[in-house]
Amino acid sequence: MSRSLRRGALAATAIVFSVAALSACGAGNDAQTLEVRPDNAAVTVDDVKIQNALVITQPLPGTKGPAAVSATVFNNGSLPQTIDAIRLPGTAAVVKLKAAEGAGPIVVPAHGSVVIGGEGNASALIENGSEAARDGDAQKVVFKLSKTGDVGLSAFVVPSKSYFKEYGPTVVPGLPAEAASASPTASTSPSGEASHGAETPASGEPTTAGH
């Protein structure tokens, strides 16, 4: 290929990339225009951005117990803010907030962030979670911040499995205890063998069940 032809090919390639870039800019950078779907809910209001918001329920369907709100809250302002409350509109859910240190409010530092959910992080426990959210739904969640006020978004409701297990509710009803309570008639003899239907009198002498 001659030098002039190579220059022409390079120029054509540059024009193609320029047109593609301009088309993308003209279409906008929002996820819907670019056909990019974020994995989890996110919203920005003034200096506050909330992303990866989820409501995480018990791992097994139908299990009664608390659920948890998980999210990362960013503060791009020059002053710290506190998360004063988290609400789930349309439900009777009560969300109990706890800072990572265990005392005081959850503080989002200036030009910083705070993670809610997961070991060593702040937590937001939904005490009556089994009544408030159902797996597969999109639940409205409102974060009330001390300066920005209410910031709401729709969060996916997912069970505490796979990626979400480490960020879900810390209180999970124990299946072994439930299984034990479901069969109170079984007993164990001193020899370690299970016996059913046999009774031991107060004198301590064993009786033999009739056949």
Score class of each variant (00 low, 15 high):
residue 195 S to P: 06
residue 164 F to E: 04
residue 107 V to I: 13
residue 27 A to Y: 12
residue 198 A to E: 15
residue 72 T to D: 07
residue 23 S to T: 11
residue 68 A to Q: 15
residue 159 P to G: 02
residue 44 T to K: 15
residue 83 I to S: 00
residue 3 R to F: 14
residue 93 A to E: 02
residue 179 A to D: 04
residue 74 F to G: 04
residue 74 F to L: 09
residue 206 P to G: 14
residue 144 K to L: 08
residue 101 E to V: 13
residue 38 P to A: 05
residue 157 V to A: 04
residue 151 V to W: 00
residue 70 S to G: 13
residue 48 V to R: 01
residue 140 K to C: 12
residue 125 L to N: 09
residue 110 A to M: 03
residue 59 P to N: 06
residue 58 Q to Y: 11
residue 203 S to H: 09
residue 129 G to P: 07
residue 32 Q to P: 07
residue 149 G to C: 09
residue 196 H to N: 06
residue 87 R to S: 05
residue 6 R to D: 10
residue 5 L to R: 09
residue 147 K to A: 14
residue 203 S to C: 07
residue 117 G to I: 01
residue 36 V to L: 13
residue 5 L to Y: 11
residue 127 E to W: 06
residue 188 T to Y: 11
residue 201 P to G: 11
residue 147 K to W: 01
residue 19 V to L: 09
residue 195 S to M: 06
residue 122 A to R: 00
residue 37 R to N: 13
residue 172 V to M: 04
residue 164 F to M: 04
residue 176 P to D: 01
residue 93 A to T: 05
residue 5 L to N: 08
residue 167 Y to R: 13
residue 51 Q to N: 15
residue 211 H to A: 10
residue 199 E to T: 15
residue 108 V to Q: 00
residue 49 K to N: 03
residue 124 A to L: 05
residue 142 V to A: 09
residue 179 A to Y: 04
residue 207 T to V: 12
residue 76 N to C: 12
residue 135 D to F: 04
residue 43 V to E: 05
residue 39 D to E: 13
residue 192 G to T: 00
residue 137 D to Y: 13
residue 186 A to N: 01
residue 153 L to A: 05
residue 69 V to S: 02
residue 130 S to Q: 08
residue 155 A to H: 03
residue 117 G to N: 08
residue 186 A to I: 15
residue 156 F to S: 13
residue 89 P to K: 03
residue 8 G to A: 13
residue 177 A to Y: 06
residue 133 A to H: 00
residue 30 D to G: 11
residue 149 G to A: 09
residue 10 L to H: 14
residue 164 F to A: 10
residue 115 V to I: 10
residue 151 V to C: 10
residue 52 N to V: 10
residue 178 E to R: 13
residue 65 G to I: 04
residue 146 S to Q: 01
residue 177 A to L: 08
residue 56 I to Y: 10
residue 83 I to W: 01
residue 12 A to T: 05
residue 20 A to M: 11
residue 38 P to C: 14
residue 72 T to I: 15
residue 68 A to W: 12
residue 108 V to C: 02
residue 127 E to D: 14
residue 198 A to V: 09
residue 141 V to F: 06
residue 32 Q to D: 15
residue 90 G to F: 08
residue 99 A to N: 02
residue 82 T to P: 04
residue 35 E to C: 09
residue 109 P to R: 05
residue 64 K to G: 12
residue 74 F to V: 08
residue 207 T to P: 00
residue 134 R to T: 11
residue 133 A to V: 07
residue 81 Q to M: 06
residue 147 K to T: 12
residue 210 G to Y: 00
residue 63 T to C: 14
residue 178 E to W: 09
residue 25 C to G: 15
residue 205 E to R: 06
residue 25 C to W: 06
